[in-house]
Computed example of a mutant assay.
Amino acid sequence: MGTWTERLTRLGIELPEVVTPVAAYAPAVRTGAHVYTAGQLPIVDGKLAVTGKVGDAVSPEDAQRHARTCTLNALAAVHGLVGVDSIVRVVKVVGFVASAPEFHGQPAVINGASELLGEVFGEAGQHARSAVGVAELPMGAPVEVEMIVEVA
């Protein structure tokens, strides 16, 4: 199969630079055999890609794509700390969706994260998950993703 880096290359996926924290925290922290990422926003080239609530200013389909971007940023944080090739499996994903009133499609939005992890890691990408609707996210982001991975 090769390494995860080779798999990313075959899929045409390039990890971005680690996003600079917007407050007083680390992008990722290792304890024992696990790396915990901070919540990652859909930041592209140092800028928030979109603002607004899902089900209002942001469509669920666009939010799903932004959840994928958040997940790439989380993988970049892991890579910056220990290298993506040290990942043994994805353990847990938590997704937050800034939701318009009456929007109930949070699980479908966070599928953007889960499906990417399945593409990249196959069976090792199957994870436990929470998809939570919230009133607001930092900087007006529509979605935020954090994850826990087991590493060698």
Rank of each mutant, 00 (worst) to 15 (best):
V19I: 12
T20E: 15
P21Y: 10
A23Y: 09
A26Q: 14
P27H: 12
V29Q: 11
R30S: 04
R30I: 09
T31Y: 12
T31L: 04
T31C: 01
G32H: 11
A33L: 09
H34L: 14
H34M: 10
V35D: 00
Y36K: 10
T37A: 06
T37W: 06
L41C: 04
I43W: 07
V44S: 05
D45C: 01
T51C: 01
T51A: 08
G52A: 10
G52N: 11
K53M: 12
V54P: 03
D56I: 00
A57E: 15
V58I: 15
V58W: 05
S59A: 08
S59E: 05
P60E: 13
P60C: 06
E61D: 14
E61V: 15
A67R: 06
A67W: 08
R68G: 04
T69E: 09
T69F: 05
T69G: 01
T71D: 04
T71R: 11
T71C: 09
L72Y: 08
A74S: 12
A74F: 10
L75V: 06
A77L: 08
A77K: 07
V78D: 03
G80R: 04
V82D: 04
V84Q: 02
V84P: 01
D85S: 10
V88I: 08
R89M: 09
K92C: 00
V93K: 08
V94H: 06
V94R: 10
G95V: 08
F96T: 00
F96H: 14
A98K: 05
S99V: 05
A100G: 03
P101N: 05
E102D: 15
H104L: 11
Q106Y: 07
Q106F: 02
Q106L: 01
A108V: 13
A108P: 00
V109T: 02
V109I: 11
I110Q: 05
I110A: 00
N111L: 12
N111S: 14
N111W: 11
N111E: 14
G112K: 03
G112A: 09
S114N: 13
E115N: 14
L117D: 03
V120H: 07
V120A: 07
V120E: 02
G122N: 09
A124Y: 11
G125L: 05
G125T: 10
Q126K: 14
H127I: 01
H127Q: 15
R129G: 02
S130F: 12
A131R: 02
A131E: 09
V132I: 15
V132G: 00
V134E: 06
A135E: 14
E136F: 13
L137P: 10
P138E: 13
M139A: 12
G140P: 03
P142Q: 04
V145A: 07
E146I: 01
E146V: 05
E146F: 01
I148E: 15
